[in-house]
Amino acid sequence: MNKKWSGLLSLILSIGMLAACGANAPSSAPSGTSSGSSSGAPAKQPAAQPEAPKGNAKLKIAVVPKLIGIPYFNASERGAKKAGEELGVDVIYTGPTQADAAQQVKVIEDLIAQKVDVIAVAPNDPASLTPVLKKAKEQGIRVIDWDTPADQSLVEYSVHQIDDEVYGRHVTDLLVEKMGTDSAQIAVLTGGLSAANLNTWIDWATKQAQEKYPNLKFVGDKIASDEKQQVAYQKTLDLIKANPDVKGIMAFSTPAPLGAAQAVQEKGLQDKIAVVGTALPTDSKPFLDDGSLDVATLWDPEKLGYLAVAVAKDLVEGKKLTDGQDVPGVGKIQVKSDGKTIIMGPPTDFTKENAGDYKF
């Protein structure tokens, strides 16, 4: 009897141990969980969402200008790097050496490979960048634009220097004021024909001329200068030779007004041709001083570079930007009703009298 009960007890203990092991083992498809479905097919997992770096890792924010090596984007680089130091993020400021969309795509491909957290880009040609920016987003990289709009379906914030309509109309008003007449032949010089911001300003400048100054006559189409002062200079010489009665030139992109002024200066036409455009005060001063450039109108590109980094940091950290918000190092910003478009502030006009007061 003792052997019988001893065997029975051993059997009971063995069954209990097996039951306990089964209870602790993971089930391949427990009812009511996301590890499977009633058909036995694996459930679709939610897409990975980008997150801010954990622990002591710094955010990597890439700022991509249209090109590097010209004064305007050199100034925005100083602002972006200053923001990186003050806001505690790593800033990579890199771009093509020419205003070329294909080169810019290669730069962004490299940044994707580096697994940066944010790409802030000023496109040379928005459409050309759409595929590579889409690729960046698919890999969890946040995308914003600055200086020039990109594909708006891909960016989470669009950082503008100024209100485009106000700015474009203002340039036309400046030209008429400096010509001293609203009945004249005028020309438009630009940087690149595909640059969205330049084209938008030109469209509003043209609309202002049509609505307010119907006696202005545009000579030909807008003239591209490839973001190079020397090209703008040569194109302006050609313009003057072909159109000796032209009285005014509005030039968009920071090298363009300088090249136009250089041509006017060389020909001694300061009193016959008015030139206004988007240029830095330090670069403009020699031409403003002798009257070959009547007025330059712009904003502080250092602040724009700073703002691009600040916006990128807030985006990753989930901080919502608000209209009228005071951004340290920049000032109060405007956020439009779409919640995406950010405007840094109104432009500043630089003249012979005040250009020396600025350091950019």
Rank of each mutant, 00 (worst) to 15 (best):
Q210M: 14
A232W: 00
V171W: 08
S153Q: 14
L154M: 08
A195W: 01
V171R: 10
Q152G: 13
L193A: 15
K212E: 11
T181E: 10
D182T: 08
W204Q: 10
K241H: 12
L239V: 08
Q185T: 15
D151G: 05
E156I: 10
D238L: 12
A196P: 02
L174H: 02
Q229G: 13
T206F: 11
A184W: 10
G191Y: 01
Q210K: 15
D173Y: 00
D173L: 04
D238W: 13
S194C: 07
H170L: 10
V171S: 13
D173V: 03
N243V: 13
F218Y: 13
H170E: 12
N215P: 02
V155D: 02
Q185G: 14
K228W: 04
A150C: 11
V155Q: 02
D163A: 15
N243M: 11
E177C: 05
A232L: 03
K212V: 09
L154F: 07
A187R: 04
W146D: 05
N243I: 10
K212M: 09
D226C: 10
T206Q: 13
A205W: 05
H170W: 07
L216K: 03
T181D: 11
D182R: 05
R169P: 01
N197C: 00
G191I: 04
Y233C: 07
Y233M: 13
K207I: 01
A224C: 11
N197D: 02
I162G: 08
V159P: 02
S158Y: 04
L198F: 10
E165D: 12
I223G: 00
A205I: 05
I240F: 02
V188N: 06
Q234V: 15
A195F: 07
Q210R: 15
V155N: 01
G180D: 07
Y233F: 15
I186E: 04
D147P: 03
I162F: 15
A205V: 05
I202E: 00
E165V: 11
R169S: 12
P244H: 09
T200A: 15
M179A: 07
Q208T: 07
A232T: 00
W204I: 04
E227I: 11
L174C: 08
H170M: 11
G168H: 01
Q210H: 13
